[in-house]
Amino acid sequence: MYIRVLEKEDAALYQELRLMGLQQCPEAFGSDYDREVRFSRETVIERLQPVDDQQATVGAFGEDGRLWGIAAAIRMGTVKERHKADVCRVFVHPEVRGGGAARQLMTELIRLAQGWTGVEQLRLAVNAANEPARRLYMALGFQVYGTERESLKWNGVYYDEELMVLRLVKA
């Protein structure tokens, strides 16, 4: 696998994998398939456009050029929150889970965020029942700072999310 920042030419590959994630793991995302399947190509491209010190989406590609995993980081927009960036849209195709793609994606996001002027921390929310993801994030240095009970509700079932942070600079 190789990891790189996604660009507009990757929009179709990205959208296919993103929609798969929303269908297969609806409890893992705040968004849903019915919403995002209606996104125009322009909307998807806008999401992918890397913006210096603001946002980036990375992809894990196989040697055959197939996109196997995605993850994004988006910097907070307000003056008082610009020291934070949120990790979101993380999904790895089930066929390659456990092979290190998620770790590689997250390592690259952390590296990119460390280069963003003024960003001091990365935050994320993870389904509290998703033990593999929780273990990975903790192994990368993320720490739980809270739990949002019943954070998501899908098909009548509530899901708790653990809120995690990785400090990029010492406070």
Rank of each mutant, 00 (worst) to 15 (best):
S151V: 01
T57C: 08
G65R: 04
T107D: 11
N155Y: 08
R135C: 07
Q55I: 01
M1T: 02
D86T: 10
E95K: 05
A28W: 10
Y145D: 14
K80L: 09
E131I: 15
R135A: 14
G62Y: 08
R18M: 08
E63K: 09
Q49R: 13
Y137K: 05
Y137F: 10
M20G: 07
L19Q: 08
R103F: 01
L166N: 00
R123P: 02
Q54I: 12
L122P: 04
E42H: 04
A11R: 05
V44L: 03
E131M: 11
R89S: 15
R111I: 01
V90T: 04
F91Y: 15
E161H: 13
E161R: 14
R135N: 14
L67R: 07
Q121Y: 07
Q24S: 15
R103P: 00
F61K: 04
E95A: 12
Y145T: 12
P94T: 08
R82L: 08
A11E: 06
H93P: 04
M76F: 13
A28M: 07
L152Q: 05
V87M: 14
R167H: 13
I45R: 14
G98A: 09
R97C: 07
R18G: 09
T117R: 04
D64E: 07
M20Y: 09
V58L: 14
E7I: 08
A60S: 14
F91G: 09
L6N: 00
D10S: 02
Q49M: 11
P94S: 12
V58M: 07
R18L: 10
G141R: 00
P132W: 03
W154R: 10
G30V: 04
M138R: 15
C25W: 01
G100K: 06
L67M: 08
E120Q: 13
A56S: 11
L163Q: 14
Q121C: 09
V92I: 06
A71M: 11
R89Y: 11
S31A: 09
V51K: 12
G59D: 01
V79S: 05
P26D: 03
D86C: 08
V157E: 11
T57R: 03
I110T: 13
G115D: 06
E131P: 02
G115T: 07
G30P: 06
T57G: 01
V90F: 07
E9P: 01
T117S: 09
V58I: 12
T147F: 04
G146D: 04
Q104E: 10
V44D: 04
V126K: 08
E63L: 12
E46T: 15
V92S: 03
Q121N: 09
L6D: 02
L140D: 01
Y159E: 06
R35D: 13
A113Q: 14
A101G: 02
Q49H: 05
R38H: 10
A28T: 00
E27R: 01
H93K: 06
T107M: 11
M138E: 15
A11P: 01
Q54E: 15
D52G: 00
G100H: 03
V51D: 09
T57E: 00
Q15V: 10
L13S: 13
T107H: 11
L112N: 02
H83Q: 03
